[in-house]
Design a protein around this nucleic acid. Structure first.
Length: 487
RNA sequence: GCUCCGGUAGUGUAGUCCGGUCAAUCAUUCCAGCCUUUCGAGCUGAAAACUCGGGUUCGAAUCCCGGCCGGAGCACCA
């Protein structure tokens, strides 16, 4: 296979034999909603499956009922968001449903002499490990281990008093690879009703993931490079059981410039404290929030795919995502006037009229219609640039001259665009005084003002408020609520 | 302390495996100009990078060694 000229931009070809398909997975712990960080795993893995054919599996690694306790709603959130991202999984697996299988393999490894129940206190074990010495329990015979194991799973031991370890090489030069833990005792019930307090011994990631990746027939794994050692540990299990390890690729840490690291627990705390309105607060980098703001899944996919898979730690800017989204949205979004921080302007000699500006500057999509009488609203920002005698073009309406600053009044000059051009008038937008109240929720704050009535016809669409930015219309009740997309 | 990764313009990426065609790709950002009844879009132009030091070689972003910087693992978290 020639790799001289790369055919695809973005994702590099995977090591797949001609004609073979792939099985890949995205394995989150549902302890919060998917964020832009999770998206990389969803998009990249699913994209490879689309490319090579095969199966995309979402596996909930929810085997920690305590420290990273799963959130019940999050299971569905992940499925929704996957589907939204055009990455509907072919199979959904929930680890907490499969504990008996993990137990079976644990027994098998004990019988083979590759695992032992260790009663060392954490610190003590660390001492042995750092000294490259076996702990006193390492050489227990299989029957003894099985006996202890049975007591473990029947709840006879307290938390932290026993743990099942996989034997690796206690003298390995890398301390991270010496006899790692595979199961521990957790006496907190699992949040899922189906599971509840059925088990008090839970597998740890390296064990659970190792077994599942084999059971589910994974051919390729792409995940964070913080899990590189995980692969080395899991390889011991694979060797013991005579399995072949899937091909792996890793990526580095991702940060968002504007946000920093997003830790699910940190976000949850901030929400509980009332710092954010919820998981879809427009300031948050969760998929729910981005969706509500009108960021399209295509833009997110493209963004992630063009980023590719590299081991470098990266710090991204939302601007790149916004640029991607803007390209898609700009031709689709209808234009409307929204006046934030409005100030009333009376046109003293104007006659009531109706204007019909086009919905889009280049796409021929028809017009909107605005009834205007003698009073309109303009942005306070624009008022700041005015003085007595200033001439203005009210976009798509007519030209006026300021005749009074307080109260703000102007007199009608004419309709002609030529006049406006000749006199190089500033062109500003406006809204009818009897328009509809609008509130915009944006990452950088809230804006209240007044907009065209016709915006109420755009529920759930992304529109552009001219000279303001793109917004997704979220609600059109007494007040229009819009979520800011981006400039 | 031990171990493992990585380091190309502001940001992200291509190229690194199999040294030359790389005076280094593309996107975004920024700046300037054009265009436009939006401060949006579009168009044109510009700025901007191989972490450092040695070595190998006719030749190194690419291979080797060392330093520096960044990240990660050594958890009864995932």
């Amino acid at each position: 296979m020639s790799t001289k000229k790369e055919p695809d931009k973005g994702l590099k070809p995977l090591d797949v034999a001609e004609g073979d398909t792939v099985v890949m997975r995205f394995a989150p712990n549902p302890n919060g909603p998917p964020t832009l960080g999770s998206t990389r795993g969803i998009v990249v893995n699913s994209e490879y499956v689309k490319k090579y054919g095969g199966k995309f599996i979402i596996r909930f690694d929810d085997t920690d009922p305590q420290t990273k306790r799963p959130m019940l709603e999050a299971y569905d959130w992940y499925l929704e968001d996957c589907e939204w991202l055009d990455a509907k999984p072919d199979e959904v697996v929930i680890a907490s449903d499969r504990v008996p299988m993990y137990y079976d393999y644990a027994r098998k490894l004990m019988e083979m002499g590759h695992a032992y129940v260790c009663f060392c206190e954490g610190g003590d074990f660390k001492k042995f490990k750092d000294a490259k010495e076996p702990c006193p329990h390492r050489d227990q015979n299989p029957d003894t281990n099985l006996e202890y194991w049975n007591k473990m799973i029947s709840g006879e031991y307290e938390e932290k008093t026993a743990v099942l370890r996989i034997k690796t090489d206690i003298t390995h030069k890398d301390p991270a690879l010496r006899d790692f833990g595979a199961f521990r005792i957790v006496k907190t019930a699992h949040p899922r009703a189906e599971v509840d307090d059925k088990y008090c011994v839970w597998p740890l990631l390296d064990f659970q993931g190792a077994i599942e990746d084999h059971e589910l027939g994974m051919t390729h794994i792409i995940r964070g490079k913080d899990l590189m050692d995980s692969e080395k540990r899991q390889t011991y299990i694979y060797n013991y059981l005579g399995w072949e390890y899937p091909k792996t690729t890793h990526w580095g840490r991702v940060k968002m410039h504007e946000f920093g690291k997003f830790s699910t627990s940190g976000l949850r705390h901030a929400i509980e404290e009332g710092e954010y309105s919820g998981w879809d607060d427009p300031r948050l980098p969760t998929l729910r929030a981005l969706r509500r703001r009108g960021i399209l899944p295509e833009a997110i996919r493209k963004f992630m795919i063009e980023m590719g898979v590299g081991e470098t730690d990266i710090s991204l800017s939302f601007d790149t995502l916004y640029a991607e989204n803007r390209k898609i949205i700009d031709p689709k979004a209808n234009r409307y006037f929204f006046v934030w921080d409005p100030v009333e302007l009376e046109i003293t000699n104007a006659e009531a009229c109706t204007v019909t500006p086009s919905l889009h500057p280049t796409e021929k999509r028809g017009t909107r219609s605005i009834d205007v009488d003698s009073k309109i609203c303009i942005c306070n920002d624009d008022v700041g640039n005015l003085e007595l005698g200033s001439k203005l073009r009210l976009k798509d309406l007519y030209n006026v001259e300021i005749t009074s600053m307080d109260p703000l009044q102007a007199s009608y000059i004419d309709d002609s665009m030529d006049t406006a051009k000749k006199e190089k008038m500033r062109i500003i937008h406006w809204a009818p005084e009897n328009g509809h109240p609008v509130k915009v929720l944006a990452p950088h704050g809230e804006f209240e003002g007044i907009g065209e009535k016709q915006i109420t016809e755009e529920l759930e669409n992304v529109v552009q408020f001219e000279r303001f930015g793109f917004c997704r219309i979220d609600d059109v009740g007494k007040e229009i609520v819009a979520y800011y997309t981006h400039k």
